[in-house]
């Protein structure tokens, strides 16, 4: 009984200290670190979470998330910069566009599974990239749309490092919390059932296809949120933000954090931001460094950081469980 109560309290302790660090850190760090590491990591984690969510709970490894994220970014930029729509209207438009795009993709891919699903979604993601390059009227070709500004809330500009960080990180935490809670509902359990045994779920009268479509669309909305925050952070959206390298960037964040761990995306995004920021200062070949890091993680720590943490946690819980019988007797 003691072990049963002990395990969650250790976990909530870890959560509380992480949350505390997330609140205090930006005030201790330089504004460069707050913006270029922490804020970048926070919104990148949202995009990676949309990928990990689909993989973990839906069994769908989607490479289309960056394309959908791009639809969100472009829609915001086109509405706000091109048509002068106020920011809240442009945000709403961007989320609707990303969600509709995800729904369209979902209807196309819902009948494909496994590695084939991966391939089809990769092709869809790259289609968005090539469309934005070849289209001048709407997306302005390879130059993209510069001059995107985050809004002002009263006297606070969301372009400032600390407000931007708190916005991005609180949205990221909200997404994490929302998804975690959603997966405990009837819907979440049914989705996981569809992941584990689609034939059985079908026999039980569930429409597996609908669950997959809904999950993919939801993940698309989340990627769209990341798209809005991302375009605020970058100040520009261009095809080069959606190309294969970028798809791999977000995949690397998800893999470093662990494809089975939503929380892990935060660790993955911070590690990734640190490596890209600091590796580029001592070598031009930082992409090679990233490739080798990715290779090492895939080969030696397939669960990523999240997998390592839960393995250590399990080991600690085991040690505790071995200790407690003696004390309760």
């Amino acid at each position: 009984m003691i072990a049963f109560h002990g395990a969650p309290s250790g976990r909530s302790l870890a959560w509380c200290s992480t949350l505390l660090a997330a609140i205090v850190l930006p005030f201790l760090a330089s504004s460069f670190v707050t913006q270029d590491i922490l804020a970048l990591a926070a919104w990148s984690a949202i995009v990676a979470m949309s990928m990990v969510f689909l993989s973990k709970y839906g069994g769908m490894i989607s490479f289309a998330q960056v394309g959908i994220y791009g639809v969100g970014s472009y829609s915001f930029a086109i509405l706000a910069v091109g048509h002068g729509v106020p920011w809240y209207g442009a945000v709403a438009g961007a989320l609707v566009a990303a969600t509709l795009c995800a729904l369209l993709f979902a209807l196309l891919v819902a009948r494909t599974y496994g590695i084939y699903f991966l391939m089809v979604t990769l092709a869809l993601g790259l289609v968005v990239y090539f469309l934005t390059i070849s289209n001048y009227g709407l997306t302005h070709g390879s130059g993209g749309i510069p001059g995107v500004n985050p809004p002002h809330l009263g006297s606070i500009s969301l372009a400032q490092p600390i407000p931007e960080y708190f916005l991005d990180s609180s949205v990221a935490f909200a997404v994490l919390l929302g998804l975690t809670l959603l997966m405990r509902t009837q819907f979440g359990l049914a989705l996981q059932g569809c992941r584990d045994n689609p034939r059985k779920m079908r026999a039980m009268g569930y429409s597996v296809m609908s669950y997959r479509v809904i999950a993919f669309t939801l993940a698309g909305s989340i990627a769209g949120i990341g798209g809005v925050l991302g375009v605020w952070y970058n100040g520009i959206i261009a095809p080069s933000y959606l190309d294969l390298t970028r798809i791999i960037d977000f995949l690397a964040i998800a893999v470093i954090g662990g494809m089975e761990s939503l929380e892990g995306t935060f660790a993955g995004a911070i590690i990734y931001a640190i490596v890209t920021t600091y590796a580029s200062s001592f070598t031009d070949r930082y992409n090679t460094v990233i490739g080798l890091v990715l290779l090492a993680i895939v080969m030696f720590a397939p669960g990523g950081v999240g997998g390592l943490v839960s393995r250590v946690g399990a080991r600690l819980a085991l040690a505790k469980a071995q200790l407690t019988p003696a004390s309760t007797e």
């Binding site: 390298t245 791999i248 995949l251 893999v255 992409n287 090679t288 990233i290 490739g291 080798l292 990715l294 290779l295 895939v298 080969m299």
Partner: peptide, 9 residues
């Protein structure tokens, strides 16, 4: 993922 890592390098 391995082929992706190799392709980056």
């Amino acid at each position: 993922l391995i082929t992706i890592a190799v392709s980056i390098v």
